[in-house]
Computed example of a mutant assay.
Amino acid sequence: MQSYQADLIEIADELTEAYVEVFTAPPFEHRDPAETRAAFRQRLEGDVRREGFQAWIERSADGRIAGFVTGWTTPAPFRTDRSYGAVLERLGAEQVDELLIDAFEVDELGVLAAARGTGLGRRLLATATAERSRAWLLAWNQNFDTLAFYRRIGWLEPEVRGDETDIIVFVAPTHPRTP
Rank of each mutant, 00 (worst) to 15 (best):
E89V: 02
E45L: 11
G121H: 03
L147W: 04
R37A: 12
G71R: 05
E17Y: 02
R161D: 06
N141H: 14
P77F: 03
S60R: 15
P75S: 14
L138G: 12
T74C: 15
P179E: 05
D7Q: 11
S60F: 03
G52L: 08
E131C: 06
D62M: 05
R50D: 02
R161L: 14
L124S: 02
F149P: 06
P158L: 02
A6H: 13
P77E: 01
I167H: 11
R41D: 10
I57Y: 07
I101S: 03
V106N: 00
D81V: 10
I57V: 15
T118C: 06
F104Q: 13
S60C: 07
R132S: 09
D13N: 14
L8P: 00
L125D: 02
G71E: 09
A25S: 14
A34S: 13
E105M: 07
T146H: 03
A139F: 01
Q142T: 13
L120R: 01
Y84D: 15
R59F: 10
D13I: 07
R82F: 15
L8C: 06
A61C: 03
M1W: 07
R50V: 01
L100N: 04
D62E: 14
F40L: 03
A139W: 01
M1F: 09
V171W: 04
E21D: 15
V106G: 00
G52M: 08
T146V: 14
G63H: 08
R90N: 14
A139D: 10
L8I: 08
R132Y: 04
A12D: 10
G110F: 02
R151P: 02
I167K: 13
F104I: 08
N143V: 08
G85F: 03
G52C: 09
I57R: 06
L147H: 03
S83A: 12
D166P: 02
A18R: 02
Y150E: 09
V69I: 15
E105W: 04
